[in-house]
Design a protein around this nucleic acid. Structure first.
Lengths: 186, 186
DNA sequence: ATTCCTTTTTGATTTAGATCAAAAGTATTC
DNA sequence: GAATACTTTTGATCTAAATCAAAAAGGAAT
């Protein structure tokens, strides 16, 4: 299992704890088009993506669906508010490719929290999520659509081959038409 | 001390741990205009605001300063990447009012992580930060300047009396002129 | 008061990106 | 292959918000 050994290093986990983790983590194959969580339901897991690509999205009041996030290899996804407070989420998380994830369910996560080094894991996971959000927020304020697009393909070059244009556009907060024009070089 | 007793309930901490916390938490008065952290320096604390108001901001390439966050009573602030990895932050955090904060330094935070219930604290703090960010990101995508403004004053009514218009405008990602016109009702 | 300085408002113009609409490409299925 | 659906591009127009500029309104200091 690739995942815990990476984690152990990054989150500075002890040998015993990272062995222990394996008892709680479940490997899961997710076919393209399947969902990790859905609007109206409770998200009961944290997911670590080993392979594949996911899109988190929601429906705006206007009715159109808006991409909140993409998540690919070596990142975490969950609907944090739903996971933590056991309440329905407003988001969908769909596999855009056949994927493999490692999952941990809330009750096991709670057990891990109470173990030695559990805090390091919790903090690490939340840190990674927070960092991604911080970068995104900074990248949107007062940046033109074009520079946001350039920033995306710089640190995520494969996204263009892997996701439809419309999904990418709403992630960037622009319309598909505008994104198409940007790509064409105006 | 008000802070730990709140925290104990919210983050489901044990009696002994929430007593223990008090040994690590330092109360600090921060005069208006003073900084909790600054660009180029390492942010070595997590701050919990008991009273007052802070603005986190950075300088864009254009040279203008942009408000990343406001933080008022009962919220946490830190420069998470700097705090976790001991590297210089890019942000400033300035007190907009005479304020009182509770601080914990990294080395003590590490000690807490290793204690029983430390994970609950870590997860709780990070959860609160993440939640705020998620809401902000959702509120910006495809929302007009006016509705973003309305959303802000709805869950933060006092901000108008407490922060200059220019700071609020850059937080919303709009110019001060536009915000002024929105307030005037066009 | 008067002056100086900061913050906010108002006005005129420009522009990035939305919207509406249709055409062109690319896949998938029969 | 034609027929069907998506997906992406191109075109024309419209609009929200930026930009540039200056006036007004508040505060603080003399």
């Amino acid at each position: 299992m690739e995942f815990p050994s990476n984690l152990k290093k990054i989150a500075k986990l002890s040998d015993s704890f990272s062995e222990e983790i394996e008892n709680f983590i479940v490997r899961q194959e997710v076919a393209k088009g399947k969902f990790l969580f859905e609007q109206g339901k409770i998200c009961r897991h944290i997911f670590f993506i080993d392979k594949g690509l996911f899109r988190v999205y929601y429906y705006a009041n206007s009715g159109k669906d808006i991409t909140a996030w993409f998540s690919a290899e070596q990142t975490y996804i969950t609907a944090i508010d739903s996971f933590y407070h056991h309440k329905p989420t407003n988001d969908f998380c769909e596999a855009l490719e056949d994927s493999i994830v490692y999952t941990i369910k809330y009750s096991d996560f709670e057990l891990l929290l109470d173990m030695e080094d559990g805090a390091r894991l919790a903090f690490h996971v939340m840190y990674e999520i927070t960092k991604k959000m911080t970068e995104f927020i900074t990248s949107t304020k007062f940046q033109s659509a074009e520079s946001r697009y350039n920033a995306l393909i710089k640190d995520y070059p494969s996204i263009l081959q892997r996701a439809p244009l419309g999904y990418i556009a709403s992630y960037l907060g622009i319309t598909q038409e505008t994104l198409s024009r940007i790509r064409a070089g105006k």
